[in-house]
Design a protein around this nucleic acid. Structure first.
Lengths: 140, 140
DNA sequence: AACTCTTTTGACGTTTACGTCAAGTATGAC
DNA sequence: GTCATACTTGACGTAAACGTCAAAAGAGTT
């Protein structure tokens, strides 16, 4: 144990190719996100270096995309996780946005539950038909 | 009560503008979906008429889009709800696709639950900070 | 010094999912 | 008959989210 416990994991910085592997995206994508101000890698010379903050943001970006939010919507929310260094008024706005997004996500979860139920029913009907038509139940 | 109980709701056919209002989409969108073979309105002269089947399909299309599936993915699955008139082999394929989609949706629901939890935590932190900075709790 | 490897910027291409005209047809109201 | 209205096809445009390719620059290797 070192006194200056630079927890290697937290402080680690990544090159662009490391980030690509970490999040399974292309370098083009990472540069694109930087251009759109979703990421802020530091520069060493003219190379990008991605910090813990960027990793955190990328996690949220991927999550947001998965749930159907646009990059612009995601960008506005990323501040929720960096609010220390902003003016109070802006934090308030981001907070409100976060509330909206929360309710939208909860709504989506509900609908997803219903859709899953429907799909299950439909799959059962389909299965029945296939069996009646003489399909081998081991195939299904 | 009529003997030939044509349950008006089920058998109703809609013009394109009625469909637009029903699903809050543009006529262009409906024609586009037809071109992509997601809808199959019947033709009277050169006008389109949408039946119960099309309404059912539209419901599923909107649902699919909401959960981030592409139109092409949706198209392949729509057969699940029309399987009566297909060959057994194709039904099997659609069935398999349905199973995959089901698991993908269940996975998404799980992740959504986690993301919601995260977001709640983050919102709480944000709220705390705002209160500490002297915000009026009635604003939040 | 020459070479390789990584990364950079910049420009242009691509796909998806529509929007936006333009021009034509058909139907019912007046 | 003609006027408005609803609908059609077809062509072109657009925004988002990247992919692809070319040219150059820097750091390390032999």
């Amino acid at each position: 144990m070192n006194i200056i416990s630079t927890k290697n994991n937290e402080d680690k910085i990544n090159t662009i190719t490391e980030m690509c592997k970490l999040f399974k995206v292309s370098a083009r994508t990472l540069r694109f996100y930087e251009a759109k101000e979703l990421l802020f890698p530091i520069r060493k010379g003219q190379h990008r270096l991605f910090t813990k903050s960027d990793r955190g943001r990328m996690k949220l970006i991927m999550q947001g995309k998965r749930f159907g939010f646009s990059l612009e919507e995601i960008r506005q929310l990323l501040n929720l996780y960096n609010f220390g260094d902003h003016r109070t008024r802006q934090i308030k706005q981001t907070y409100q946005l976060g509330l909206k997004r929360l309710s939208s996500m909860e709504q989506q979860k509900k609908e997803l539950g219903l859709a899953i139920k429907d799909l299950k029913t439909q799959l059962q009907l389909c299965k029945d038909l296939l069996l009646k038509r003489g399909a081998d139940s081991r195939d299904l």
